[in-house]
Write a protein that binds this DNA or RNA. Structure first.
Lengths: 153, 153
DNA sequence: GGGCGGTTGGTGACATGTCAACAACGGGTA
DNA sequence: TACCCGTTGTTGACATGTCACCAACCGCCC
C-alpha cells in the first residue's frame, strides 16, 4: 500500500464528531423510547415499517430488505415480538414458503402511542438543534452517501 | 399530550437519510474492517483509543468513559481481546481494585496495519463524497448535538 | 411429469451486549 | 483505628445478533 492519505484536521474533527453524535444520540433515543413506550429501537423500526404499508402486512424478505436486516435476525426478532402480541405471521397465498408479517391491533396501538414521544425525542436531541441550512446539508450529504453505497460499482 | 409536532417534509427526509446512511455506512465499514484486518468495529475502537494514549495504557473506567461503553461490556470484550493477545491487564499501583488495560505489541501492530485501510474505507464511503461546506456543517451540527447531550440540564 | 438451481424462512450454535449483583477496595470521618 | 459510603472491575444469567445450514418450496427447462 502506498502512503495512506490521512484525514486532515477538519475531516478528522467532522468524522469523530459524527461518530460521537451517532453514539450519544443512539443511547439517548433508545433510553427515551424504553422509558416512554417500553419499546426497543428494533421494535420501533419493525412496527414503523409495518404501519406504513397499506394493509399493515409485508413479506419477511421484503421487510428485511427495507430495514437492512438479515432474514435470520428479523425472524428471531419477530418470534419475540409475536410472543408479546405486537405482530403475527400469516401464510402467504400463492407461495407456500412465504411468511407474511402482520401488524396486530396491539402493535398498531403501540406504535401510535410511541410515535409522538419518539418525534419529540428526535426533535429535542437533534432536529430542533439544526438550522435550515444544516438540515438541507445533512439531507444532501446523506443521500449522496446512500446512493454511493447502494449503487453497484 | 398535546398535538405532537410532526416533522415536516425536509426534516423527515433528513432524519430518514441520516438513519439510512448510518446503517449502510456501518455495514460497509464493518465489512471492510473485517475483510482488510480481521477486526470488528469494537476491536478497532478499543485499539485506537489505547494507541492514542501516551504509554499505551488506560484504566478500565476511563477507557469505558471515553468510548461511551458500560464497564461490563468493556470488561467482557477485553477478556476476548486478551485471549487473542491484542491487549493485556496490569495491576494498578496505588489502587488495588484497579485494572490497567495495556496495548500489547501484537495489538499495536494490528491497529497500525488496520489504520490505513480503515481511513481509505472512511474516505471512499463518506468523507471524499462531501464538499468542504458539508464537512464544516457536519462538524458544526454534530458538536452542537454532542454538547446538548453531554451538558447536564 | 421430473429434475434442477435459486429462493424463502426457520433453526441451533455461538458471539456479543445488557443488567443486576457482588467482593474488594479507597478515602473521608469520628 | 473503625466505620461508612462510594468506586472499581468482574461475573453469571439472560437478551440480542451472526453465521452456517437446512427443508420446503418456486419457476423453469427438458
Amino acid at each position: 500500500m502506498t502512503e495512506p492519505r490521512w484525514l486532515d484536521d477538519k475531516q478528522a474533527r467532522a468524522w469523530r464528531g459524527y461518530r460521537r453524535m451517532r453514539a450519544l444520540l443512539d443511547l439517548q433515543i433508545t433510553r427515551d423510547l424504553a422509558n416512554d413506550s417500553g419499546l426497543s429501537d428494533a421494535d420501533y423500526d419493525v412496527l414503523s415499517n409495518l404501519s406504513e404499508t397499506s394493509p399493515h402486512r409485508l413479506r419477511l424478505t421484503e421487510l428485511a430488505g427495507t430495514m437492512l436486516w438479515s432474514k435470520s435476525r428479523l425472524s428471531h426478532h419477530l418470534t419475540r415480538m409475536q410472543q408479546r402480541g405486537l405482530v403475527d405471521r400469516e401464510e402467504c397465498a400463492g407461495d407456500a414458503r412465504g411468511s407474511i408479517i402482520v401488524l396486530t391491533e396491539a402493535g398498531l396501538r403501540a406504535i401510535e402511542e410511541a410515535a409522538p414521544h419518539h418525534v419529540a425525542s428526535v426533535r429535542r436531541h437533534m432536529i430542533d438543534l439544526l438550522t435550515d441550512d444544516e438540515i438541507a446539508a445533512l439531507d444532501a450529504l446523506s443521500h449522496r452517501v446512500i446512493t454511493r453505497l447502494t449503487t453497484p460499482t
